[in-house]
Amino acid sequence: MDLTAEKTLQKRQQISGYTTNPIFHSNKKEGLSKEKIREIIAKRAAKEFKEGDVVTLGIGLPTAVANYVPENMHIIFQSENGLLGVGKDQNKENIDKRIINAGGGYVEAAYGACFYDSQMAFTMMRGGHIDATVLGALQVDEDGSLASWIIPGKMVPGMGGSMDLVVGAQKVIVAMEHTSKGQIKIVQKCDLPLTAYKEVDLIITERCVFEVTHKGLLMTEINPMFSMEDIKESTGAHFKIAQNLKYMEI
């Protein structure tokens, strides 16, 4: 670990009083609620978007990212089943089953949206026309490889469109809980079958943010509720700490 950066962090924590504030540690011990974890991650992921970006969100937690895009920012959400411009959920009283998102949810087509077939959908995705994607993972490693589609002998949902998406999107953001039921998810090397090799750019969890660089993981932000020790204990990969380490907004 980069000692200078760690010292910088300690200094910052002293200044802000976080290390001496027991609330943060006790909160951590009791654990954050699932909702709060989702909120922290989704809110942070939404900050990665730029005005006009075309974004594809994965199913589950990543879908919640759409709720945190600033109102004055125009982001176009793409769905692999054939909708560019995913709108809000349909009114439950008047469902049109002919318009869905990739998770099978009934959605509206946003103003300016268009429909297309699967071939066009994957031309967008694999062809490099999607600015950013946010998706979950079972494991991510320090090379930026991720595993998300199979736990052999246990769970085989299939890869769906994730392999194409991750290979093609300009920016690949993994948004997931830091650990799963205590199991470490950020590892030195994925041991589950990969979804893609070295394609992840950013890892966002409720505890911290890692950039994947060609020299490995770089922690750029930390949730002030967690200490560096907490992160080290719950992370299986080597990582460095950025000189200008920031606090995540929680």
């Binding site: 699967s118 071939q119 890869m159 392999m163 893609a196």
Partner: peptide, 29 residues
């Protein structure tokens, strides 16, 4: 199990008379 984009391109290749496709999807997996 076939990646969705690959499945579509395999079918398209058949339909459009191509002998196959080259895809980056799945490299290293």
């Amino acid at each position: 199990l076939v990646p969705m984009g690959t499945l579509i391109e395999k079918i398209r290749a058949k339909g459009t008379g191509l002998g196959g496709v080259l895809t980056p999807t799945g490299v290293g997996t």
